[in-house]
């Protein structure tokens, strides 16, 4: 990998992160009225109001507030949650394991199921199966994951008793039980995304079939298997890597809603609670944290892409 590629990629990453941080800061600057009164209500104790103004720095000029916020972001100090009266970074650290295990399990399921399925469905094409596959994929993409979650709980937890109905079992309390506690939510998030990735993988493979190099390989007498796995798959894998990077954001968004369905105390449930309580420092910190995380993941995907195909340059 060329170092200029990496340098340029990291430069765009830096500008993106700066815009993200600025947008998160500015979004909470435009709140109509007094944010402290919005949070505490007009009848709050004046001493409490004064203390919070001090804490949030609402009396400072905007430039000083921006400097304070930037300094905080750079040093990992995301402020203090009003509802929980604890540092935002500590709250995030407490809950990140829950969301991360759901997201990783869901992402793993998508890769393991969708990519091979997409390949098989591209290779074994037949006239009659085409509309069936097409319809199934489109329906799969349209199903809301939280609805699936509600149905999965009802069937697999309440009726069959195979999984817990909700709640998180930490890793330290046993790996099997921990995985069991996040299995259904991961499946619920994964199913619509499996449809998306099957579609991309399949289209990407079919796209490659029409290229000259495939005909050349066949006419040289290579067996089908060889052409498929050595030639087609290698070229078809590039768009698949891109789409896997893209759906990571969907997985993250999926965890936010699914944590509510299964009462899992992760970042999503924390964010929903923060929005309901209008706990602005907590919302700001969570939004920034989650968005940074997704952006960094996308950088890794881009680098992986570059490793697989060094021809790809930054656009």
């Amino acid at each position: 990998m060329s170092s200029t590629y990496l340098a340029r990629r990291i430069f765009t990453l830096a500008t993106t992160l700066i815009v993200v941080a600025m947008a998160t800061f500015l979004a909470f600057e435009v709140i109509p009225g007094d944010p402290v009164l919005t949070m505490l209500g007009p009848d709050a104790d004046p001493a409490l109001i004064a203390a919070m103004r001090e804490e949030l720095g609402t009396e400072l000029p905007p430039a000083a507030r921006l400097a304070r916020w930037t300094r905080g972001v750079l040093t990992g100090d995301l402020g203090t949650s009003i509802r929980y009266a604890r540092p935002v970074s500590a709250l995030i650290l407490d809950r990140v394991a829950v969301s991360l295990s759901i997201a990783l399990l869901a992402m793993g399921a998508v890769v393991v199921i969708a990519v091979p399925l997409g390949i098989v469905l591209a290779v074994r094409r037949s006239h009659w199966s085409e509309p069936v596959i097409s319809a199934t994929i489109q329906v799969g993409m349209a199903i809301p994951s939280f609805w699936l979650g509600i149905i999965l709980i009802s069937v697999f937890s309440l009726s069959l008793g195979l999984f817990p109905t909700g709640g998180y079992v930490p890793f330290e309390a046993g790996i099997a039980a921990s995985i069991r506690s996040v299995t259904l939510p991961s499946i619920a998030i994964a199913i619509p995304l499996i449809a998306v990735v099957v579609r991309y993988t399949r289209n990407s493979m079919i796209d490659q079939f029409s290229h000259d190099y495939v005909r050349t390989a066949f006419s040289k007498g290579f067996p089908v298997r060889h052409v498929l796995y050595r030639h087609v798959l290698r070229n078809a894998s590039l768009p698949v890597i891109t789409v896997l990077g893209m759906i990571f954001a969907n997985v993250v968004v999926g965890t936010i809603i699914i944590e509510q369905v299964f009462a899992l105390p992760g970042l999503g449930l924390l964010l929903v609670t923060a929005v309901s309580a209008r706990d602005f420092p907590l919302i700001q910190g969570l939004v920034l944290y989650i968005t940074f995380f997704v952006t960094l993941f996308n950088l890794l995907v881009d680098i992986a892409y570059h490793v697989v195909d060094p021809r790809v340059e930054l656009t």
Binding site: T15, T16, F28, A249, V253, V275, V287
Partner: peptide, 22 residues
């Protein structure tokens, strides 16, 4: 476009939740 790239980095629902919080 740099600003749009930055906004695109927000996972959709996260941005919606931020707007609703405000």
């Amino acid at each position: 476009m740099r600003v749009m790239d930055g906004l695109l980095a927000f996972p959709g629902l996260i941005m919606a939740l931020m707007v609703i919080a405000i």
